[in-house]
Write a protein that binds this DNA or RNA. Structure first.
Lengths: 164, 164
DNA sequence: ACGATAACTTGCATTTCGCAAGTTACATTG
DNA sequence: CAATGTAACTTGCGAAATGCAAGTTATCGT
């Protein structure tokens, strides 16, 4: 099977357009979100706990995200079946996009997220982002955010800073 | 023609997921970008100056964006053929998302945008956003950003603050 | 060795996309 | 006021993407 490079037809040089060619679909950013704040690492986790993505689509997205340098995939030492996915620097740099998307959705749509939590995040963007980055750097996989609207909605965000 | 309400199948209550159901495709955010920083108002402008969107898709997106309360469509008084599209408050609130997407793309992908411009925007996010919001409030349609990579790439962003 | 697991493929029906051409309503021109 | 033009869409249709169910391959635990 011939490897397919990035799409040949670049619509324009606009950064927004190019960004959308990479992550502009209904699933890619959800996968990235799960890697970023829910501590997901494996195919199975995405498949099961996600919003119902089909396995072939998931495989396709993981492949494309890897090809774009947004995530890496590596086999686990201790268990050769498992593949561990994680965000690259390029991937974690999508945190601000995700955060703004979260804030926008919470403000303008009926979501399962408690408003207070989001308003709090809005006022402390930088702290939230700093925590997301720290987790990435230190490979901390403990879930940062609950799964809004799935029964965990009432709980509030774990404090952004651990110690202080 | 039976009106179709919002998608019935909501994947989850997560704000990110819901946001993506509204604008998570390859075209919606480009239309919003053009309304926001290029001063586009009409169907024709999107169709011609855009990245090559098909007219049926454009019509579909405009319809959906209107249904989602992100844009409004109103016939022009002086010329009954024309329909003027503009962003609602909900629509202009996507500015931070777009800005972060722009910054990310410029940093991590080969785009037609001069790096210096973007780095400058990154350091003055709030000023850029303030200007975008001012333009929206005052219905100022002068283009704010050039069309990167289409020959206008060399020019730099018009100063964010007018007077100072 | 044998069943369980994890990570994918494969087939196929359905939906969406993309392109070209056509339609409708209004406006302008002669 | 008839002819031509323009703006905003539809329509038709082949191609590509999506969603589902089932199958495959390579470990792993016992």
């Amino acid at each position: 099977m011939p490897e397919k490079k990035a799409k040949s037809t670049r619509r324009s040089g606009c950064p927004v357009s190019i960004s959308l060619e990479r992550i502009g679909d209904r699933w890619s950013l959800l996968v990235i979100r799960d890697l970023m704040v829910r501590g997901f690492r494996t195919f199975r986790e995405f498949e099961q706990a996600g919003e119902g993505i089909a396995s072939n689509i998931l495989a396709d997205r993981l492949r494309k995200l890897e090809a774009s340098g947004i995530i890496t995939a590596e086999r686990e030492e201790s268990d050769g079946r498992r593949v561990n996915y994680r965000l690259t620097k390029k991937g974690i740099d999508l945190a601000p996009v995700l955060l703004e998307l979260l804030i926008w959705g919470a403000r303008h749509e009926e979501t399962g997220a408690p408003c207070a939590v989001i308003m709090n995040m809005e006022e402390s963007r930088e702290e939230v982002l700093a925590e997301v980055r720290r987790r990435w750097r230190e490979r901390d996989s403990t879930p940062l955010l609950p799964k809004f609207g799935d029964g965990g909605g009432g709980r509030h965000l774990a404090r952004t800073r651990r110690g202080a």
